[in-house]
């Protein structure tokens, strides 16, 4: 199987699902002719025409509301919000409507929509082009929140998201678009709600999402040299959370750290830690630390950005601190 870039894997998922199912449509700012800021939708307007692939005006609230309405009427809309920082503008529609309608209508409608958002710091994006806000969304019952780390998961999860009958927030770290790997064929579906063990280990569990999975794998490699064998779990889906996977890993390793780029305070890592407290307390040999974004706005200056955004080194340090602490 050919290796492809992360953004190509996403494009292939969109293309295959649109070929398969006429009810799938997509739109976003500059997603049409231009092919999207990160080239994910390149060529799709040419293949599917303007009735199914549209450029939208700079109207994030309406873009989201329109997806909800179209989904209620049987389409499977995919809406791209160019940078996750502006998901703030969509929040009313997402929180009060997309997440709520099916429940509020007693099951008499469904909202099968996907909201795709690039997220994360990528070097000099500053305060409005760098944020990771997945924890905000994870707080809302009724939404699913998905965050792949490899081309294969990107493709398989996006296909699953499109086929899902619920609103799915699909999060793509900008630094992953240029990574490559195999992405599977037409039938490659990755189920939503299933974490993945990206590296097996016996001494320690590192639980991560998105780009932090790659950093955790690099950390695990370094720690191997110290004879610390790390298991790296890629959550892949933040909601619903695969509790079984993390709990069973910790039962084996007895130690864990949780890693995400999102801000630490009230970040979804705190939820993972709480789950371990509730369901694996007796198996833990050390407190579970969090490696997360500093609780600071994300600065433009690269030396400052480096302090705020976590990475391999901070993961290594947290694992060592946990091991040395007991």
């Amino acid at each position: 199987m050919a290796s492809m870039y992360f953004n190509e894997a996403l494009r292939e998922a969109l293309q295959e699902e649109m070929r398969e199912d006429e009810s799938v449509i997509l739109y976003g700012q500059d997603a049409g002719i231009y092919g999207g800021m990160f080239r994910v939708t390149q060529g799709l307007a040419a293949e599917f025409g303007s009735s199914r692939v549209k450029d939208s005006p700079i109207s994030e609230a309406a873009m989201t509301g329109v997806a909800i309405g179209a989904a209620m009427m049987g389409l499977r809309p995919i809406c791209e919000i160019m940078f996750m920082d502006w998901i703030s503008i969509t929040m009313e529609q997402l929180v009060n409507h997309a997440a709520a309608l099916r429940y509020g209508y007693g099951g008499n409608c469904k909202v099968p929509m996907v909201l795709r958002c690039p997220l994360g710091a990528y070097g000099g994006g500053a305060l409005h082009h760098s944020k990771s806000l997945e924890s905000w969304l994870a707080h809302i019952p009724g939404l699913k929140v998905v965050m792949p780390s490899t081309p294969s998961d990107a493709k398989g999860l996006l296909k699953a998201a499109i086929r899902d009958d619920n609103p799915v927030i699909f999060l793509e770290h900008k630094l992953l678009y240029g990574t490559s790997g195999e992405a599977g064929d037409k039938n490659h579906i990755v189920p939503i709600g299933k974490a993945d063990v990206k590296r097996e280990g016996s001494d320690f569990t590192i639980i991560a999402t998105g780009k932090m999975v790659l950093d955790s794998l690099a950390a695990a490699e370094q720690l191997q040299a110290d004879d610390i064998s790390c298991e790296v779990i890629d959550l892949r889906t933040i909601v619903p959370l695969d509790k079984e996977c993390i709990v069973s890993s910790v039962k084996k390793t007895h130690r864990a750290v949780v890693v995400h780029e999102a801000w630490k305070t009230c970040g979804h890592g705190a939820e993972v830690v709480a789950v371990l407290m509730e369901e694996a307390f007796d198996y833990l040999d050390a407190p579970v630390l969090r490696v997360a974004g500093l609780d600071c706005q994300i600065p433009f200056s690269l030396p400052l950005e480096k302090v705020v955004i976590p990475g391999t080194q901070k993961i290594v340090e947290a694992v060592r601190a946990t091991v040395n602490g007991d």
């Binding site: 502006w86 000099g124 500053a126 305060l127 706005q297 600065p299 433009f300």
Partner: peptide, 23 residues
Amino acid sequence: GRGGHYFVNDPKVGVLGGTGVVG
């Protein structure tokens, strides 16, 4: 160095409000 060109400002002459968010 916090804001980059998105946050141009000079309060002395009444420039208060650049942004990276359209609108």
